[in-house]
Amino acid sequence: MTYKLILNGKTLKGETTTEAVDAATAEKVFKQYANDNGSDGEWTYDDATKTFTVTE
């Protein structure tokens, strides 16, 4: 399945997607991506749209 990440950071904004077997796997990928790019904030997940959002 395709999962989407929306970044609403102070310095990093945008979207990216990943293919993953489940939401937990996608979350690990996205959290590593956000960490690698210095983005940290409040995470939410919408199962209906398969979208993670991180807001700083």
Results as ranks from 00 to 15, higher is better:
3 Y>V: 04
3 Y>E: 04
40 D>E: 12
44 T>N: 08
17 T>M: 08
25 T>P: 00
11 T>W: 13
3 Y>I: 04
10 K>M: 11
3 Y>H: 04
26 A>D: 01
8 N>F: 13
41 G>L: 12
4 K>R: 12
42 E>F: 13
44 T>Y: 09
9 G>N: 06
31 K>Y: 05
48 A>N: 10
41 G>W: 15
13 K>S: 09
9 G>W: 07
28 K>G: 06
42 E>V: 13
31 K>T: 04
47 D>M: 07
6 I>K: 06
43 W>M: 05
37 N>V: 15
6 I>P: 01
14 G>H: 13
14 G>V: 14
40 D>N: 12
6 I>S: 03
35 N>W: 13
25 T>W: 07
33 Y>G: 01
56 E>T: 08
21 V>H: 11
22 D>Q: 02
26 A>S: 00
48 A>L: 11
17 T>A: 06
42 E>Y: 12
33 Y>D: 01
14 G>D: 09
1 M>D: 14
40 D>M: 13
39 S>A: 15
49 T>M: 05
1 M>V: 13
44 T>C: 07
46 D>S: 05
18 T>S: 04
51 T>G: 01
19 E>I: 15
50 K>D: 01
55 T>L: 06
53 T>R: 06
30 F>C: 00
7 L>H: 03
6 I>A: 03
52 F>R: 01
21 V>G: 08
35 N>K: 15
1 M>F: 14
3 Y>R: 03
25 T>K: 05
17 T>I: 07
38 G>E: 06
16 T>Q: 09
37 N>H: 14
31 K>W: 07
12 L>R: 11
46 D>R: 02
42 E>W: 11
37 N>S: 09
19 E>L: 14
55 T>A: 06
39 S>Q: 14
7 L>V: 09
5 L>I: 03
8 N>P: 04
29 V>K: 08
49 T>C: 03
2 T>F: 08
37 N>T: 10
46 D>I: 04
12 L>M: 12
56 E>N: 07
3 Y>M: 02
46 D>N: 08
30 F>Q: 01
48 A>K: 10
28 K>M: 10
8 N>T: 10
30 F>H: 01
55 T>Q: 07
43 W>E: 00
19 E>S: 10
23 A>G: 04
17 T>H: 08
2 T>V: 13
40 D>V: 14
29 V>W: 14
33 Y>T: 03
25 T>A: 13
38 G>Q: 08
7 L>R: 02
52 F>K: 01
41 G>S: 04
31 K>G: 02
40 D>Q: 13
24 A>H: 09
20 A>N: 02
18 T>R: 04
16 T>D: 02
30 F>I: 00
42 E>N: 09
40 D>F: 15
21 V>L: 11
14 G>C: 15
41 G>I: 04
13 K>Y: 12
16 T>K: 10
5 L>K: 02
37 N>W: 14
55 T>D: 06
39 S>N: 11
40 D>P: 08
50 K>A: 05
1 M>K: 12
39 S>L: 15
51 T>H: 01
37 N>P: 03
55 T>W: 10
26 A>Q: 00
55 T>G: 05
52 F>Y: 05
48 A>R: 10
49 T>G: 03
43 W>V: 02
42 E>T: 13
55 T>F: 08
49 T>S: 09
40 D>G: 10
23 A>R: 12
5 L>A: 02
26 A>C: 01
29 V>C: 07
45 Y>S: 00
55 T>C: 08
24 A>W: 08
54 V>C: 08
53 T>I: 08
1 M>N: 14
11 T>L: 12
20 A>Q: 06
47 D>L: 06
44 T>H: 13
16 T>L: 15
54 V>Y: 11
19 E>M: 13
31 K>R: 15
15 E>S: 10
41 G>P: 02
34 A>H: 03
7 L>F: 13
9 G>E: 05
44 T>K: 08
34 A>Q: 03
23 A>L: 08
39 S>R: 10
30 F>Y: 01
33 Y>S: 01
8 N>A: 09
4 K>Y: 14
11 T>K: 12
42 E>P: 03
39 S>F: 15
11 T>R: 10
31 K>P: 01
49 T>R: 05
30 F>T: 00
28 K>L: 11
56 E>S: 10
31 K>I: 08
49 T>I: 05
13 K>C: 14
25 T>E: 13
47 D>V: 08
53 T>L: 05
32 Q>T: 07
31 K>S: 03
53 T>G: 02
36 D>L: 12
21 V>T: 11
36 D>W: 10
23 A>W: 13
31 K>M: 08
47 D>F: 07
52 F>M: 00
19 E>R: 13
14 G>T: 14
19 E>Q: 14
39 S>G: 09
2 T>E: 08
46 D>L: 03
53 T>W: 09
56 E>I: 12
45 Y>M: 00
30 F>L: 05
